[in-house]
Structures are given as structure tokens and as C-alpha cells.
């Protein structure tokens, strides 16, 4: 900026008048009202690493395209298994508290959204129990939308879920 101003007082005057523009963005924004600051701040993009880890795959099961997406949360494992491209029936699979370590672990299934059917509970338990056990007893939230719920299909789907391990 040297040489741009005729006298030092001229420079001081310029700086005082243009202080707003010379300040970095954050400072300038903080000079405005509190509500306004928030609105301006969100215009700034940040690129922090995602804290949610997920893995997905698409495979054919008995000729039907099957998508599996596994997402890890600290208190839940979220799994979507779909042959319709939708979440479908939403089920939670929760390990029951055990009185001692000798008894075999049991799990409770609850349909959170969708049709309450015995088969849904069977499929959910079959598909998600091992996930919960491997994920240090975290409950599993399962979205299930299957066209084929045969034992054979469930066995194959289980293998796909294993290939999307995030826990």
C-alpha cells in the first residue's frame, strides 16, 4: 500500500473508511447482528470428514437385484436390505439383557413401521442377530423390503450383509 497515499494521514483516513473490507470474512460478519452472523456463516462451505461410515453393494439373489447398505452409528447399526429400492418395513433388533454369561443370548424384534407379520420377525432375527453380536451387542435398525423371503434367499442375503461390514 506504500506509495498509494500522499500523506500518512491520508492513509489513516483510507484505512478507517475501508476497515470493513480489509478485515477477514469472519471478523466482518461478527460485526453484524447476531442473527445475521449465523445466516452468513452457513454460506461458508466446510469439508470436515464424514463421521458416519457406510458400505453398500448390489447383488443378484435368485435373479432379483438386491441392494444392501450398512451404516455404523455408535449406538446402532443401520442396515437397509431392499429389492424395491425402498426402506420398506422398519424393524429394530435389540439384544435382551442377560442374567449371566452362560445362557444363550436372546434378541427382541419390534416392527417400528410396516406390516406386523411373523415372517418379518423371523427374517429380521435371522439377518441381524449376527450383526448385533459382532458389533459388541449394539442394537440393529433394519429396513427390509424383500420380494423373496425364502430360506435360500435369506442365506444369500446374509452373505451380502457380511460383505458390507462396517462394525
Amino acid at each position: 500500500m506504500k506509495g498509494q497515499f500522499e500523506t500518512p494521514s491520508c492513509k489513516r483516513l483510507y484505512l478507517r473508511h475501508h476497515a470493513e473490507q480489509l478485515l477477514p470474512d469472519e471478523h466482518r460478519l461478527s460485526r453484524r447482528g447476531k442473527e445475521k452472523r449465523g445466516v452468513c456463516r452457513i454460506n461458508k462451505m466446510s469439508s470436515a470428514e464424514p463421521i458416519i461410515r457406510s458400505r453398500q453393494t448390489t447383488k443378484e439373489v435368485n435373479g432379483i437385484s438386491t441392494q444392501v447398505v450398512c451404516t455404523e452409528f455408535s449406538n446402532y447399526i443401520f442396515i437397509v436390505i431392499t429389492q424395491y429400492g425402498k426402506i420398506g418395513t422398519l424393524i429394530s433388533i435389540t439384544p435382551d439383557s442377560r442374567s449371566n454369561d452362560i445362557s444363550t443370548p436372546t434378541f427382541s424384534t419390534k416392527v417400528l413401521l410396516g406390516k406386523e407379520e411373523a415372517l418379518t420377525h423371523v427374517c429380521a432375527k435371522n439377518l441381524a442377530t449376527f450383526v448385533s453380536q459382532e458389533a459388541s451387542n449394539r442394537p440393529v435398525l433394519l429396513g427390509l423390503a424383500l420380494k423373496d423371503s425364502s430360506i435360500d434367499a435369506i442365506k444369500q442375503i446374509k452373505e451380502i450383509v457380511k460383505s458390507c461390514q462396517v462394525w
Binding site: G38, R41, I42, K44, M45, S46, S47, A48, P50, I51, I52, S54, V69, T71, E72, F73, S74, N75, Y76, F78, V80, T82, Y84, G85, K86, I87, L141
Partner: peptide
């Protein structure tokens, strides 16, 4: 993600057929 009021807020979107799942949080809890 975005820093909102001194807190980093993370967003996770899963797009599906006819809908989406959106998770919003600052730590990985559901």
C-alpha cells in the same frame, strides 16, 4: 457438514426410490 454456531454439524443422506433418509448430528449417534 457445516460449522453452525461453533459446532460442526454432520449430515448423511441416503437416497432411495421415492424418498430419502437424512441423519443430522454432531457425533455418530442415532
Amino acid at each position: 457438514s457445516e460449522k453452525i454456531m461453533e459446532q460442526t454439524v454432520h449430515f448423511h443422506v441416503m437416497k432411495m426410490s421415492g424418498g430419502f433418509f437424512l441423519w443430522v448430528g454432531s457425533s455418530a449417534v442415532l
